[in-house]
Design a protein around this nucleic acid. Structure first.
Lengths: 340, 340
DNA sequence: GGTCTATGTGAACACGTGTGCAGATTTTGC
DNA sequence: GCAAAATCTGCACACGTGTTCACATAGACC
C-alpha cells in the first residue's frame, strides 16, 4: 500500500485516518478522537492508535480538518515589502514570532513592484484568519473581497481609514517633530529634510512633521529632496542638498539607511565632520543604528509594540467580527546617540 | 443569508459555489467549470456566473479544492533562522520571489531557539508540496515524517546526506581558502580566524578551509576564536585575538557582520588601520558589505544561485518523487574590496 | 441524411476530516 | 440497589470543491 503510493505520479498520497483505524483495529472516529484534545477515548485504545499512527507516519490533514464545521485554518497572510529594507526584516521576524505564539501559520507574500492585483487576490482563496498588510500597496478590490469573504484586514505602517479595517502606525509626525526639535536644541538652524519616495504614506507624515517643527521654531526649511529610502539614495542625495544649502548644519532623514548613506557621503566626499560640522538624524532605529562607528541618532519605530498591537487587534477582530475599524498610533520617541 | 452569516460567532462563513449557482440560475458544476481553465462551458453562462460571483464575493476555497483528487496545495513551508542575520533576510526575499514565480505559497516558520520539535512537526499537517530548511535545526523525527508523508525536503546552507533529501550549500571550504589566499597574496603572515558558533555546519567548513589554506602556505594559525555571527560578537572578539597574536596582520571572519564588528573595534579601540595595518575579510557578501565606508572584502555566498538550485531541485523532486537525494555546491568566489 | 467529432450539461461521487447523536457501559452518590 | 451522571463508542452527516460519466446538442464531413 505505502510502497504503491510512493511509486505513483502526482502528489504522494498521505496515510489516512481510515488506514490507522484498520491497523489499530478501531473505528475511524476513535482515530479522530485520539488527535482531538478533550475527546472521550479509552486510554489503552488511545495509546494503540498513537503508536500505529507514528509507525505509518500519519498526521491529521489540516486542509480536511479546516474544511469542517466551524474550525479555523489558522492561516494568516502577511504582505511584506522589500526585505532589503532593514526595518522590515527586523519587523517581520518579530511578527512571525508573535503569530507563531498565537498558533497562526504565516503565508508570507512578497509585494514585488511588478506584482499585479490578481496575484494578491489569489491568496484570498485560502480561508484566512486574517490578512496583514505591511508592504506593497493594494487597491479597492482587495479591501472589498476581504470584506465580502469575512477576512480581517490589519494594516501596518500606514493608516487605512475604512470600515472594518484596523491600522497600526508609528507616530511619524510626532517622531519627526522630536527629531527636528533635537537638532534645534543642538543649535542647528540650517536644517534640511532628506525624504523617501513621495508616494509613500510614511514620507508624507515625516515630511509634515519636519515642516511643522521648522515652522514652530520660526525657521524655514534649508533644503529638501526625495530619495528611495536606501543607503545609496541617501549617499547620492547629499550633493543636491548641499547645493541648495551650502551652510546646512542639520539633516533629518526619512529613514536610517538614508541617514547612514548621507553620513558616509558627508564624511568621505564633502569633508564634513558628523556631528561636529553637521548633525544627522534618521528614522526607524534599525538594528544597525546602534553599531559602534555608526551610533545613529534616530527616532524609534517600535516594531515590538507595533506587532503587539497588530496581534491584539487581530484577536479582538476574530472575537468580534463586526467591531468598527480602529487606528492605533505607536509613540515614536527620539533616540539620542552620537550623530547629532 | 449573507447578513445572517456576518452576525454569527466564529469564522464568518464564505459564499459557496452553491450560492453562486442559485444566484446565476445554473448548476454548481457550472460554477466550478467557470473557474477551471479549459473546461467546457457556454460563454454567456460563464459571464453570468462570474458576475454573480463577484457580486457575492465568491472565490473558490483552496482548502476544499486541495482536498480533492490529485491536486496540489502549492503550500511550501520554509523554516528560516533569525532574520536579524542580514544574509538570511536577503536570501529570504529572493526565495519568496522564486516561490511566487512557481505558483507556490510560502508558509514561513521562524526557527526560534526555544522552538521545540513538535512545533515544527505541526506544519506537516498541511499537505505541503515541500519543506525548505534554511534555518534552525531539525532532528530525525522531522526527516522521518517528511519521508512518510511524502513531503520533499530541501536543505539550504548545510548538507544533509540522507536518502531522498536534497541539499544546496555554498562552497564554504573553497571560499575560505580563496579568502585566506588573498590575505597571503597581500603578504599577510600572522593570520587569524574569527569563527561562528562551533556547532554550526557553516563554521565547521569555513574553519576547515582556513586551516587548509594556512597549512598549504606552510604557515601556522596565528589566532582563532568563536563568536555568535553578530557585529557585537565580532567587535568583542578582537581583544582576545590580539591577546593571542599581538602582531596579527590578517583576519578571516566567518561572516560579514562579525568582520564589520572586528573592523570597528580594530579602528576605534585598538588603534589599528584597516587595511593598512591589518587586513580583514568576511564571508557572505551581504548587501551592506559594498556600502562606501565599509567596502568589505568578502566571499560571495550567492543567494540567487542558491535559490535557483533549490527551486530546480524542488521541481525535479515533484516530477520524480523517488529520485535519489542530491547535494549541490555553489561556487563561493572571493570579492575584493577595500578591507584587505 | 447519416455518421463522427466537439461542445455542453447536471447528477453523483470522492477527497479526509470533526462532530452530533443514539445507544451502551461504567462510575458516582444517596 | 437504584437513579443520575459521566464516559465511551461507531454510524452517518456535513464541510466545499473538481472530476467522471452518461446523456444531449451542434457542427463538420462524406
Amino acid at each position: 500500500m505505502s510502497v504503491e503510493a510512493n511509486e505513483s505520479r502526482g502528489p504522494v498520497r498521505r496515510v489516512t485516518a481510515a488506514e490507522v483505524a484498520q491497523g489499530a483495529g478501531v473505528s475511524r472516529s476513535a482515530v479522530s478522537r485520539a488527535f482531538t484534545p478533550g475527546s472521550y477515548l479509552d486510554a489503552d485504545k488511545r495509546t494503540r492508535i498513537l503508536k500505529v499512527a507514528e509507525q505509518l507516519g500519519y498526521r491529521p490533514n489540516r486542509l480536511a480538518a479546516g474544511l469542517q464545521g466551524r474550525g479555523r485554518s489558522n492561516l494568516v497572510a502577511v504582505l511584506v515589502g522589500q526585505l532589503a529594507n532593514h526595518f522590515d526584516s527586523d519587523f517581520q521576524a518579530i511578527l512571525l514570532e508573535g503569530l507563531a505564539a498565537m498558533g497562526k501559520w504565516p503565508l508570507v507574500i512578497l509585494a514585488a513592484p511588478e506584482m499585479i492585483e490578481e496575484d494578491i487576490l489569489g491568496v484570498l482563496g485560502f480561508p484566512l484568519d486574517a490578512l496583514i498588510l505591511r508592504g506593497g500597496s493594494v487597491g479597492a478590490p482587495v479591501v472589498d473581497y476581504c470584506s465580502k469573504l469575512g477576512i480581517p484586514l490589519v494594516v501596518s505602517g500606514r493608516v487605512m481609514d475604512l470600515p472594518g479595517v484596523d491600522s497600526v502606525c508609528g507616530d511619524n509626525i510626532g517622531g519627526a517633530e522630536a527629531a527636528v526639535g533635537a537638532l534645534i536644541a543642538r543649535g542647528r538652524r540650517q536644517i534640511g529634510y532628506l525624504g523617501g519616495p513621495a508616494d509613500l504614506f510614511s514620507d508624507a507624515e515625516r515630511r509634515a512633521g519636519f515642516h511643522s517643527a521648522i515652522a514652530q521654531a520660526g525657521l524655514l526649511p534649508a533644503a529638501t529632496c526625495s530619495a528611495d529610502y536606501s543607503f545609496e539614495g541617501g549617499y547620492a542625495a547629499v550633493a543636491g542638498l548641499l547645493g541648495q544649502a551650502p551652510a546646512l548644519d542639520g539633516l533629518f532623514c526619512g529613514n536610517d539607511a538614508m541617514a547612514m548613506g548621507a553620513m558616509a557621503a558627508l564624511r568621505e566626499i564633502h569633508g564634513r565632520a558628523v556631528p561636529e560640522d553637521i548633525s544627522v538624524v534618521g528614522f526607524d532605529d534599525i538594528s544597525i543604528a546602534c553599531w559602534p562607528g555608526i551610533a545613529l541618532s534616530t527616532v524609534r519605530n517600535d516594531a515590538r509594540a507595533t506587532v503587539a498591537e497588530i496581534l491584539s487587534l487581530l484577536a479582538s477582530r476574530l472575537a468580534e467580527p463586526q467591531r468598527p475599524g480602529r487606528v492605533v498610533r505607536i509613540p515614536a520617541p527620539f533616540i539620542a546617540r552620537n550623530s547629532h
